[in-house]
């Protein structure tokens, strides 16, 4: 299998007022094509920063991030945007749908940005995706008329509509109850198997980790290792429940 994401010695620093915070302190990671990989770690460990770098919405302070064979360090804002549009699909924790657009229009949006397909082709593509996520009957609904699970399905359809090489999901089930969350993960998993799309998702929920091929454990801005889901779950048990998890769940 060939690598689709290669991260080498990446450091990411943020300045918080006068102090500089290192979110990532020399991370190296390789993700192969078709993987269904989870990035695990407690809040503040650097999961989201890592996803941002892979998703090309942020660039590394030092080190090399290669996505689909391109070094993002040398790319312009416009090139990064195009890379995101054509290579990466995003699934957000809070769905991030455009509230004034219908289900169909939300899913169609990236295709319009790409401007490659005509109206008929777009319709076919959007409907096929919505069929796969089981929302063909809800084409004309607005996001606020849908449940949380349905919204995330729309978001998944939107992420996949451009046929991206990589789908990034940042805590995709954090705002869902566990049953719905499992259904979403089942769906992602099946799409990964059917299309061979690489899925990278962050989570600190060990129930979610089980679905992954592999779990990349990250803590204090460093990759602690690559584990199998079973190892990861065992690891989680050892560590005990993440103290921040419960508060976050309560908060959401």
């Amino acid at each position: 299998m060939s690598a689709i994401v290669t991260i080498t010695d990446v450091v990411k620093e943020y300045s918080l007022g006068a102090t500089v915070v290192q979110a990532l302190r020399g991370v190296s990671l390789t993700v192969d094509k078709g993987e269904f990989i989870s990035i695990a770690g407690p809040s503040g460990s650097g999961k989201t920063t890592l996803l941002n770098l892979i998703g090309c919405v942020d660039t590394a302070t030092r080190g090399v991030v290669e996505v689909a064979g391109k070094n993002t360090a040398n790319m312009s804002e416009r090139e990064l945007t195009n890379l995101r549009l054509n290579t990466i699909g995003f699934i957000f924790q809070s769905f991030n749908l455009v509230s004034v657009l219908t289900v169909f229009q939300n899913v169609e949006f990236p295709l319009l940005l790409q401007n490659k397909l005509n109206a008929k082709e777009r319709k076919e593509r959007v409907e096929s995706l919505l069929e796969q996520v089981g929302l063909l009957t809800h084409l004309k609904h607005r996001p606020n008329e849908l449940s949380g699970g349905q919204r995330q399905r729309v978001a998944i359809a939107r992420a996949l509509v451009t046929d991206p090489l990589i789908v990034l999901a940042d805590e995709p089930t954090a705002n869902l109850d566990s049953e719905t969350g499992q259904a979403i993960l089942d769906l992602m998993r099946s799409l990964n198997q059917k299309k061979g799309t690489t899925f990278i998702f962050s989570t600190h929920d060990h129930r979610v980790m089980r679905y992954a091929n592999a779990v990349v454990r990250i803590a204090d801005g460093k990759v602690k290792g690559r584990e199998s889901p079973q190892e990861a779950v065992a690891h989680e048990m050892e560590l005990g429940p993440d103290p921040t998890l419960s508060t976050e769940v309560r908060a959401s």
Binding site: G55, E77, T81, N82, R84, L85, F109, P110, L113
Partner: peptide
């Protein structure tokens, strides 16, 4: 801002 950020993330250029 989140809407604009989302649009930018999924591939909308600044001009849009």
């Amino acid at each position: 801002t989140q809407l604009f950020g989302t649009m930018r993330a999924i591939g909308a250029q600044r001009g849009l």
